[in-house]
Design a protein around this nucleic acid. Structure first.
Lengths: 353, 353
DNA sequence: GAGGTTGTTTGTATCGATAAAAATCACCTC
DNA sequence: GAGGTGATTTTTATCGATACAAACAACCTC
C-alpha cells in the first residue's frame, strides 16, 4: 500500500486524533500509539481493530505533537549560501539523500554567504526547530567561533576551520590546489595565473587554495608573480569571463589558469573564447569542484573532484551520531575528504579519462 | 543585536522553558509569551524584566510546542525530483527566497521523479509536518488526481495539468516550444530535430513541447519527419551528447535541434563538437529553461526563458493564501507563466542580446 | 488453588506554548 | 470615595502524542 492512504475521510473535516481512533476502536489511546509505533505486545486482533479504525477515520499522526513529546523533530537544517549554485546544489542533493535513510528530513536555509544569516540558522537550530544543523560557514570567521559553543548538534561543512567544539567536514583545499597547479606545470605551463576571491587574514577558500597554488609553483622552481594572482568580486561565470578578457586584453603573459571554482573556470573558458585564445593550445585551464557540467563543456574542463558524496554522507553521519547521543561529549571530529585531479581537454587531456 | 543571542547559559544544561523565565522574572508564563510575540499592552518595565530573565537563562522558544498549540509549523514542503538539477535547483532557490519574507521555511523532499515518492510527500504534508506543499508532479499522472483531493494546501508546479481541486503553476509549454521551433525555422533551418523523453498518453513535458514543435513546423509548411524526433532515456547531458553523436554518425539529415531542456542541449553541443559539426554554421541548437550556464557556453546557447522567479513567487503566494484562509474553498487557480526566447550564438545570434 | 511468569492493556502525567476569559491594576471623573 | 474605562496581568484549559507505571489477563508449575 502506498504510504499515506487517504482512507475515506471527507476532506475539509477536522482531523481525527489518536483519541478519536481509540474511541472508534474501543481501546485506549496508548494502544493506538503502540500500534502506530509498531510496538510488540499488541495482540493481532487488537492491531487489526485499530488499523481498521485508523483507516475509517483517515487518521494521520500530528507530527508537532509527537515532536513536542519526543523532544525531536526528525528534521535537520542545512544552511548554505544558495542551493542553485552548482557546488552547493550537488551537496544539498547528496545530503538529502544521505539523511533520508536515517528518517531525517532536511530543511534548507539560504544564507547568501552572509554572516548574520549563518548565525540566524544556528539560532533556529537552537530553537529546536531542527535536531541538528549542517552549516556551511562562508560569511562567519574564526572570530565567531564562540557562537558554535552550543549544546546542539552542529556540523560545520566547508572551507574554514574553526577551533570550536563542533564536528567539521572539510576539503583538502591546500593539497588539492597544489595538485591542480602541479598538473598545469607538468603539462608545460610556466606562467600560471590564479583566479580567486579576496583573501582575508583567516582561513577562507581563497587563502587556502592560494597556499596550495604557491607551494606548487615554489616546489617547481617557478617564480611567484603577484600579477598572476587575480582577484574576483564573486565566484560567478560572469566574473570569470570578465577577468579572463581583462587579462588577455591587458597583455598579461600567462599560459595556464587555476580557477578557485569550476563556475569561475566556465566563465574563463568563455572569456578566452571571446578574445580568440585557444584552450588548451595557448592557455590551459583547470577548475575546482568537478561540477557536472565540466565534463560536457567545449573544451571539457579539467578539475579537482572533492568527492562530494563522501563529504555529505560523512556530515550527516556525524550529525546523526550527535543527535542520538547528545550527552557523550566526544572530542570534536574532523573529517577531511579525499580528492582527485580529473584531467580533461582544457589541460590537454581527453574528454573521458 | 544578532538574533539568537546565546546569553550566558551554560551549554549542556537543560533548556529553560517559558515557565522558568516566568519564575525568574516574577511574572506569569503568559506575560512572557506576550513579550516573545511582541504583543502590545505589556508595560515597558515588565518587558525589560522578562527580556533580562530570558537573556540570563538563555531561553529559546520550543518550536514544537508552539506548532502544536498553533496548529501551524511555519514550514512548507517542496517536492522536486532532485535539487541539483539545474532547473529544479534554480526553482528551489527562488522558492526559498520567496518563502522567507513570509516567515516560511522550506523543507526539501527529493522524489527522483518517482510517483510513490511524490505521494509520500503528499502524505507528509497531510501529517501536518508542513503547512502546505509545493509539488512537482513528474511521476504522477492524471490517474492519480484523486490523491490531490486533500484538505491541505497544495500547489502543483510543473508541466502536467491536473483536473484536481488544487492550485497549479505551469509553464506555457506549447506556446514556448512553438516559438523556439519557429525561431530555428526563421533562422533558416528546414530539417529541425526534436530531442525529448518518452511521451505517454497524458500531458507530460515531452508531449506538450512536442505539440508546440509540430505546430511550428506545420505552420511553416515543413513536413513532419518522425525520424527527426529522438527519444532520450533521461534529460541529462550524457544522453544529449550520446544522441547527437548517434544522429550525426547515422547520417541523419538535420540542420536544427530543439532540445527539451538546456541540460540536454549542453550535451548536444558537446556531442556535435565530438563529431566535428559546427554550431551554428552547420546545425543550430536551441534549448529550454535558460539555466545560468547557457549564456557562458561556447557557443552560447539560445533558449527559452520561462521566468522561474515569477513562477516560484506565484507558487508560494498561492500556497500562502491557502494556508492563511483554509476554509474559503476558492476556485482552484491556475497560473501560466510568461516566456521569452533568448537568442544567442547557437542559433546565429550574439552572446548578449 | 496459591504463586509466578509472561503478555497485553490502560490510567495518569507530562512535553512547552498559547487562546480566551477572568482578574487585577492605574487612573480619571464627578 | 463610588464608579467607570482602558491597560496590564494572570488563570485555566487545551493542542495531540507518548513514557512510565500500574493493572489486568492468560497460562503454567507445584
Amino acid at each position: 500500500m502506498v504510504p499515506g492512504d487517504l482512507g475515506t475521510a471527507d476532506p475539509g473535516v477536522i482531523m481525527a486524533t489518536i483519541q478519536d481512533v481509540a474511541k472508534a476502536a474501543g481501546v485506549s489511546a496508548m494502544t493506538v500509539s503502540n500500534v502506530i509505533n509498531g510496538h510488540p505486545n499488541v495482540r493481532e486482533t487488537t492491531r487489526a481493530k485499530v488499523l481498521d479504525a485508523m483507516a475509517r477515520l483517515g487518521y494521520r499522526v500530528n507530527v508537532s505533537a509527537r515532536n513536542l513529546r519526543k523532544g525531536r523533530t526528525g528534521t535537520i537544517g542545512l544552511a548554505v549560501p544558495e542551493v542553485n549554485r552548482p557546488y552547493y546544489g550537488r551537496l544539498a542533493a547528496a545530503i538529502v539523500n544521505a539523511a533520508a535513510p536515517l528518517g531525517l528530513h532536511v530543511s534548507i536555509e539560504q544564507t547568501r554567504a552572509r554572516r548574520e544569516n549563518e548565525l540566524e540558522a544556528l539560532s533556529l537550530s537552537r530553537n529546536r526547530m531542527y535536531d541538528g544543523l549542517i552549516l556551511s560557514t562562508v560569511g562567519m570567521g574564526p572570530a565567531d567561533a564562540d557562537w558554535l559553543k552550543v549544546d546542539h548538534p552542529v556540523v560545520i561543512l566547508g572551507e574554514r576551520i574553526f577551533g570550536g567544539p563542533v564536528d567539521h567536514v572539510a576539503m583538502p583545499n591546500v593539497e588539492a590546489s597544489r595538485a591542480a597547479t602541479r598538473h598545469l606545470v607538468e603539462r608545460g605551463c610556466r606562467r600560471v595565473a590564479f583566479l580567486r576571491g579576496s583573501v582575508g587574514e583567516d582561513v577562507d577558500v581563497s587563502s587556502l587554495r592560494r597556499t596550495g597554488y604557491r607551494q606548487a609553483l615554489k616546489s617547481a622552481g617557478l617564480p611567484l608573480d603577484p600579477g598572476l594572482e587575480q582577484c574576483l568580486t564573486s565566484f560567478t561565470m560572469a566574473e570569470g569571463a570578465r577577468c579572463a578578457r581583462r587579462m588577455v586584453e591587458s597583455g598579461l603573459d600567462f599560459d595556464g589558469v587555476f580557477c578557485v571554482t569550476d563556475t569561475v573556470a566556465m566563465g574563463v573558458l568563455r572569456g578566452l573564447a571571446d578574445t580568440g585564445v585557444r584552450v588548451p593550445e595557448q592557455v590551459k585551464v583547470i577548475g575546482f569542484d568537478n561540477i557536472e557540467e565540466s565534463e560536457f563543456l567545449v573544451p571539457a574542463l579539467s578539475t579537482v573532484d572533492p568527492d562530494h558524496d563522501t563529504m555529505a554522507e560523512r556530515a550527516v553521519t556525524l550529525l546523526a551520531r550527535r543527535i542520538e547521543q547528545p550527552d557523550l561529549p566526544r572530542e570534536p571530529e574532523e573529517f577531511v575528504g579525499r580528492f582527485s585531479v580529473v584531467v580533461r581537454e582544457s589541460t590537454g587531456g581527453h574528454r573521458r579519462p
